[in-house]
Design a protein around this nucleic acid. Sequence first.
DNA 1: CGGCACGTTGAAGTGACTCAATTCGCGTGG
DNA 2: CCACGCGAATTGAGTCACTTCAACGTGCCG
Lengths: 263, 263
Amino acid sequence: MRSPLDTSAAQRATAILVSTLKRHSQLSSADERAISEIRPLTSSVPRGKDLVRQGDRPEDSILLLSGTLARYHTLANGMRQYLQLHPAGDLPDLQSLFLQIMDHSLASIEPAEIAFLPHGELRRLILKAPQVGFALWRHTLIDAAILRQAITNQGLRPSTERLAHFLCERYTLVRAMGLADVGTCSLPLNQQQIGQFIGLSIVSVNRAAQRLRKDRCAEIAAGKLTVLNWKRLSARAAFDPMYLHLDLHAPHMRLAGGRLEQE
Amino acid sequence: MRSPLDTSAAQRATAILVSTLKRHSQLSSADERAISEIRPLTSSVPRGKDLVRQGDRPEDSILLLSGTLARYHTLANGMRQYLQLHPAGDLPDLQSLFLQIMDHSLASIEPAEIAFLPHGELRRLILKAPQVGFALWRHTLIDAAILRQAITNQGLRPSTERLAHFLCERYTLVRAMGLADVGTCSLPLNQQQIGQFIGLSIVSVNRAAQRLRKDRCAEIAAGKLTVLNWKRLSARAAFDPMYLHLDLHAPHMRLAGGRLEQE
DNA sequence: CGGCACGTTGAAGTGACTCAATTCGCGTGG
DNA sequence: CCACGCGAATTGAGTCACTTCAACGTGCCG
């Protein structure tokens, strides 16, 4: 499954890692050089495959090069709760670097390309370039901030507002990754899965989505989210992107097609 | 408010920090010495006071010496969602070391003693003793694991099971801190606040608590949780403490009064 | 004694759930 | 080309868990 050492693939991976970390952290050129010395193995996975399972003890952390991954919990009765949706560029199980046992699973939602960053190499990298360590740490802290919002979203918001918030977050994150056109981004989930993210039944997701569509806020169709009116959508969700700790004025946010606040 | 430099208070604080980190991480004696060189300021706060607010940019992280703190979100409409309850020994806003802006608030639930660990000193400590940095990082990762469980708890479990899970987590964490007698621990929350933790109305909390009491699982009264039958309680919650990433066989777990699994 | 915070209870309302049927889009095979 | 199957979206109907509202009990403290 894992491809043999391939220099160009490794370079692509480290370049993606650098740009992901630069989204929220400053790196010196020495830091970047240190990162580029990692030689990760890369691999392709089809849709719907578990990369890591609850109870596993992984020896590498995953960098997502393309596609979409998601983390989830499974209860004994088989019910599933999705925890986080990871767009390309993300580091979906960095925590396994310091937590031996996986307390959740990680699956591919779309076909994906991934790079395996061996824990040993990561530790060496962090010792050699502490600022890179801080950037990685910050990355895990932003993850935690996103989890906190998910708690509040589920605890306090009724279905339509809850869905709206979920969509706002997704759109903003994909935009931040520089992967979205204006007013639209991929959302490779069916209504069942969206429900498992935000704690709603499939029927409720459907009706909430219809309300958002009828009110010309947003539209979900064919694995794509279309934002019809960002102002209305984000207002409905009471969405404040502060918790994502992104630099919303950074070039990549502007490049991605203009005013996040408007339209 | 902050007391002047006091050597013995600082020593107490660093000792608590060491024992907290040792709960999940190994520290060399050199690491411990490096930690003990921190000279934090300490302070007492009454019940119900915000230590840090959403939007603040703190310059130190807080170590809780005694009492209880909680983190929470506030929505524009004034609704409150509690996110995490921190027993003595915990580091409730370590993330501010790398995330400039607070995306949530931190308040005292009980009168508390706290130590302020200046970010600058923490960064120096981490550079000097990387293993301490790893331990602190691990601490924030366990926090994230707890947040993930909270999402699943709210998304998947009905009221009684949800409350049961909340109680199991609280009991296990306080036990791990070595602060609980057998079968009982402090829970300085009223039913309103419990509801704001687990996303239930005060009435539902009341009725869920009654069911747990009637079924001889657990009892909540006067700021105290009494576990009547751990097996039944944890089974009802489908509670698996793995996500807390504690060493359940460590001496402090045994010292705290015996078999966590039983009675 | 009065006030207050907290817990408890009953009753009525409702948002979300389950169940079940129908429709839609799309790829596949006859 | 059309029939078919299948997964996903949609819809309606009935139910239920949790909510809100409102009242009342209880213990504590000034």
